[in-house]
């Protein structure tokens, strides 16, 4: 079943070099961190729990899909994102209301970027200028529109994406992170990071491979 796995491990697009662990000095400034490979979701969840308990702060797990319970095992706190989306939605609804009120119910003049714009009080069938019930559809659509755009924009901002380069991409094994392998990366800048000790920890957690990643 795994017949294509061989092809995935040899991506030809970039000259990725694997540094052999022995060739790099422990005090090397260029060291980004240690990359440990795991083969199953269960292995990475139990390993992540241990790394979290060991007290590391600058570390991450990478997986081809969101592994159930891995965020809890890593101790990731709930994201603030829903509140930001709520704010974006409220802004959208308010903007939708103000837009309709200004353009159809007032004669106000406003400075809008390049030019002055003037509202126009439309009289339609003798209805009130501010026909609030007829504003509901557009207010609703604007709420959804801004909330959805906000959700995606805040997702990218909080995740610091797009980030087309990452030290891990130089590692050949890491190409399978979007296929069928699971990784733990402990960064060298973590105060608890000691080259040998950290490698020992990762190996003891059942990693199938532990490799250095250069910054």
């Amino acid at each position: 079943m795994n017949d294509g796995a061989g092809t995935t491990a040899t991506p030809a697009q970039s000259p990725r070099t694997i540094p052999s662990p022995s060739s790099v000095d422990e005090s090397s400034e260029k060291l980004y961190g240690l990359l440990a490979e795991f083969e199953t979701p269960a292995a990475i969840v139990s390993a992540a729990k241990k790394v979290h308990e060991a007290g590391y702060k600058w570390w991450d797990c990478c997986a081809p899909f969101p592994v159930h319970g891995l965020d809890k095992a890593m101790g990731i706190r709930p994201t603030i994102l829903p509140w930001l989306v709520l704010g974006a939605g409220i802004t959208g609804g308010t903007l939708g209301m103000l837009l309709q009120w200004f353009t159809n119910a007032t004669n106000l003049e406003l400075w809008s970027g390049p030019i002055w714009v003037t509202g126009y009080a439309f009289l339609v069938s003798g209805k009130p200028f501010a026909s609030v019930p007829t504003w509901i559809p557009v207010m609703f659509e604007m709420t959804v529109l801004l909330a959805a755009i906000g959700a995606v924009v805040f997702l990218l901002l909080l995740n610091k994406l797009p980030q087309l380069y990452h030290p891990c991409f130089k590692n050949e094994r890491f190409a399978r992170v979007t296929d069928d392998r699971f990784f733990i990366i402990i960064e060298a800048k973590d105060p608890l990071f000691y080259r040998a000790k950290t490698q020992q920890l990762l190996t003891s957690l059942g990693a199938t491979a532990v490799e250095e990643v250069q910054a």
Binding site: L81, L161, L164, H166
Partner: peptide, 12 residues
């Protein structure tokens, strides 16, 4: 966008 399957990313 440089997606690397980070669990912190997956969470959000």
């Amino acid at each position: 966008l440089g997606w690397r399957g980070s669990m912190r990313h997956w969470h959000r």
